[in-house]
C-alpha cells in the first residue's frame, strides 16, 4: 500500500458566475520514503492538488470527486479534529514564501514550539527547548538566541530553514514542499535541497516536491509527474523522463532548459502560446492549441493516460494507438 494515494481527484472553484476546474481526475501515489516531483507551470493545478491533500482549499474551492488516502485511510472522511492532527504531524508543509508564512509578531522559536504544543503532550518550556533543537538541526547557529528573534531579522535562507524546522518537528511521514527554493538564490537553493534530502535519509520522510522548474528537481526526485491544465500528462522515473520524454509538452519543457554543454543556442526554445482557461477547457487534448504535432483528431478526442514502459505513462494521442 502506498503512503499517499491520490485517486481520481477533481477540485474546482465554484464562483457565482463560473466554475474553474483547477484539478481534473488526477491520480498518483507516493511510496514511503520516496521523493516525487510534481511539475507544471503556474495555473496547472499543482498547488490546488496540494491544498486538496491538506484539505486547505481556499473558498470557494471544493473537492468535487475522488479520494486522498494516507496509508489507506481516506483523508476526506476524517473529522476536522482528526484532519488537524494529520496536518503538521503526519503531512507537513514547506512553502515558497517563508517570510509571509511566518507570523511577524511572534518570535521564531515560539512558532516552532506551537507545532509541538499542537501535536504532543509537552509543557511550554519543553516545547521551546525542542524548537531550539530543531533550529540547531536545520543548521542555524546560536539557535538559543536566534529563536528569540523575529522573522524579519532572518535572511531568506534562514527563514526557509525555520519553515523546514517547523515541518520536520513531528517527524512527518510526508513532506509537501511547494516551490521552497523559488525565492532563494542558487547557493542557498542547494542548501535547502540538501536539507530536504537529509530529512528523507534521516527521518525516512517521503517528499512531494512541487515546482515549475524541471532543472531543480532532476537531482532530487526519484519520480516525476508532469501536470498540464489540471491533469497529469506524463509520469515516470526521473531518468526515463529525461532520456525519452514522450509528451510534446514534456519535450518542450526539457528543450527550454538551458544547457551547459554542446552547441550554444542563439535562442532558447520556448513553448508558444498560453495554457487554456480553466473555466472553459477544450473538449479534446488540452495541449492541442500549443502542440507542434497536433492532428485533426486531437481537437475532438481527449486522450487517456496510457502506459509506454515500466512506470512510464503519457496522455497523448501519438501513443494511444501503439497500445492494444
Amino acid at each position: 500500500m502506498p503512503l499517499l494515494e491520490v485517486d481520481d481527484l477533481e477540485a474546482a472553484f465554484l464562483f457565482a458566475d463560473r466554475t474553474v476546474r483547477a484539478v481534473n481526475g488526477v491520480s498518483f501515489a507516493v511510496e514511503a520514503g520516496e521523493i516525487v516531483g510534481l511539475i507544471g507551470e503556474s495555473g496547472s493545478g499543482k498547488s490546488v492538488t496540494v491544498q486538496s491533500i491538506l484539505r486547505l482549499l481556499p473558498s470557494p474551492g471544493r473537492i468535487v470527486r475522488g479520494a486522498i488516502r494516507l496509508n489507506g485511510v481516506n483523508l476526506l472522511d476524517l473529522s476536522r479534529e482528526q484532519m488537524r492532527q494529520v496536518r503538521g504531524r503526519r503531512i507537513a508543509m514547506v512553502v515558497q514564501d517563508a517570510l509571509a508564512a511566518l507570523n511577524p509578531v511572534i518570535p521564531i522559536g515560539e512558532q516552532i514550539a506551537d507545532v509541538f504544543l499542537a501535536h504532543t503532550q509537552v509543557k511550554r518550556q519543553t516545547a521551546w527547548e525542542k524548537a531550539v533543537g530543531m533550529l540547531r538541526r536545520v543548521g542555524i547557529s546560536a539557535a538559543e538566541e536566534r529563536a528569540r528573534h523575529y522573522a524579519h531579522e532572518f535572511s531568506g535562507g534562514m527563514q526557509q530553514r525555520t519553515v523546514i524546522a517547523a515541518a520536520l518537528a513531528c517527524t512527518p511521514e510526508l513532506i509537501i514542499a511547494d516551490e521552497p527554493t523559488t525565492a532563494l538564490d542558487v547557493t542557498v537553493q542547494q542548501q535547502i535541497l540538501a536539507l530536504l534530502q537529509q530529512a528523507r535519509s534521516e527521518l525516512g520522510s517521503a517528499i512531494l516536491y512541487i515546482s515549475h522548474d524541471l532543472a531543480v528537481v532532476t537531482h532530487l526526485c526519484d519520480r516525476i509527474l508532469i501536470m498540464y491544465a489540471g491533469e497529469i500528462v506524463e509520469q515516470g522515473p526521473t531518468r526515463t523522463l529525461f532520456r525519452s520524454p514522450k509528451h510534446p509538452y514534456t519535450q518542450g519543457l526539457l528543450a527550454s532548459i538551458p544547457s551547459l554543454h554542446g552547441d550554444v543556442q542563439e535562442y532558447l526554445p520556448a513553448i508558444p502560446g498560453l495554457p487554456p482557461n480553466a473555466a472553459a477547457l477544450p473538449t479534446g487534448c488540452r495541449f492541442a492549441a500549443r502542440c507542434t504535432f497536433v492532428q485533426e483528431r486531437c481537437r475532438a478526442h481527449h486522450p487517456e493516460l496510457v502506459s509506454v514502459g515500466s512506470h512510464h505513462a503519457v496522455r497523448c494521442i501519438l501513443y494511444e494507438a501503439t497500445t492494444p
Binding site: 503538521g88 508543509m93 506551537d114 499542537a118
Partner: peptide, 21 residues
Amino acid sequence: EQYVNYAHAKGLRMRTVVNRY
C-alpha cells in the same frame, strides 16, 4: 495573511490560530 493559512497547515488548534496568529 499567509501565516494564518500556514498556521493551519502546521495543524495548530483553532484557538491557537485565532489568538496568536
